[in-house]
């Protein structure tokens, strides 16, 4: 790689790698919600990005409301996480009830309906908040950066998002594999009719799963506000990458989703530095397509006979 010394390259890889980790964090938070929704209901939620934006705007409103309090920004950043979750959760709950539940068993219709929903929501954001991007003030302790050497520079907000992602992923794991709700979700994912016949109220499970998936996207939105500003269409930029992660990871596998979010985000971020954004995207897509041809069920498929 011409023109770069070994030391430069190390620094580039560390910093781009770290930028990739922030991207990975947002992508993973988005993909977790999408993966459990798709895994259970086979609903491809094209409006998932808009639920992230709901979370982002919720943090924006919250920080506006707390602006005049002493230490308002600090409180707002922390409080934004549950508030964003709750806002997106409630929105998801209502939308499942109004729209999605009528469209189960019709995957193509849900695709179209949720895409329409995404457009409606984008216009809603534009009417409510204006087309201009808004940003949330970041408290001082999240600004700055960590400098292990002279040329390596790691932003603190990225570190904070990483930590948040680890916590949320652990919570999702616990919810899916250790709680009664998770058992219901996994039963319904495996066999909907049989789940009903053992006494599980599958419609209630669907609504809850959809709402929780959207709530996690809301958390992604709250995290997103600390690294970037939010506009009405911010969500749509992430939706394609998020789908890529879900399909590549193998729907219904937590480990697969994590591994695929990580590899896609890292590959993008490191390659971007050397060849620019679109070329990096082309290469990532090609690699994913080749791997999916070889392993159609995704990176991690459960080892069990069916």
């Amino acid at each position: 790689m011409g023109g770069f010394s070994a030391q430069d390259l190390t620094a580039i890889f560390v910093m781009q790698g770290f930028a990739g980790l922030s991207f990975f964090s947002v992508l993973l938070l988005m993909a977790l919600g999408l993966a459990i929704i798709y895994g259970q209901m086979r609903v491809i939620n094209m409006a998932h990005g808009e639920f992230m934006v709901i979370g982002a705007y919720a943090s924006y409103l919250l920080s506006g409301a707390l602006r005049h309090l002493p230490a308002g920004t600090d409180i707002a950043v922390l409080l934004a996480i549950p508030v964003a979750f709750l806002a997106a959760f409630v929105a998801g709950y209502l939308i499942e009830w109004l729209l999605i539940r009528h469209l189960y068993h019709r995957p193509l219709d849900t695709l179209l309906a949720t895409w329409g929903l995404a457009l409606i929501m984008q216009q809603g954001f534009r009417s409510a908040f204006g087309a201009r991007e808004v940003s949330v003030p970041v408290p001082d302790w999240l600004r700055g950066s960590y400098r292990p050497t002279m040329i390596i520079d790691i932003p603190l907000n990225g570190l904070a998002i990483m930590l948040l992602t680890v916590l949320v992923t652990a919570a999702v794991w616990w919810f899916l594999y250790r709680s009664r709700w998770g058992l219901r979700v996994r039963c319904t994912t495996a066999n909907r009719e049989m789940s009903g016949a053992v006494g599980i109220n599958t419609k209630r499970v669907d609504r809850m799963t959809f709402a929780i998936g959207c709530g996690i996207a809301g958390i992604a939105g709250a995290a997103f506000t600390t690294i970037s500003s939010t506009g009405p269409t911010s969500g749509s930029l992430y939706i394609v990458d998020t789908f890529l992660v879900v399909v590549f990871g193998g729907a219904g596998s937590l480990i697969g989703t994590i591994a695929s979010a990580f590899s896609i985000a890292q590959a993008q971020s490191v390659m971007e530095f050397f060849m620019g954004g679109s070329m990096a995207k082309v290469l990532t897509l090609l690699t994913v397509i080749v791997i999916l041809l070889l392993r159609p069920e995704g990176l991690v498929a459960s080892k069990v006979r069916r």
Binding site: R186, A190, M194, G196, A197, T202, V304
Partner: peptide, 24 residues
């Protein structure tokens, strides 16, 4: 009534082909 309410009322069902949840 939907299936889950019939189960709550006291029916239980073992289907043909077992239909256990394979990945659990």
């Amino acid at each position: 009534l939907p299936s889950h309410e019939r189960v709550a009322a006291g029916l239980a069902y073992v289907p043909q082909g077992r239909m256990i949840f394979p990945s659990l």
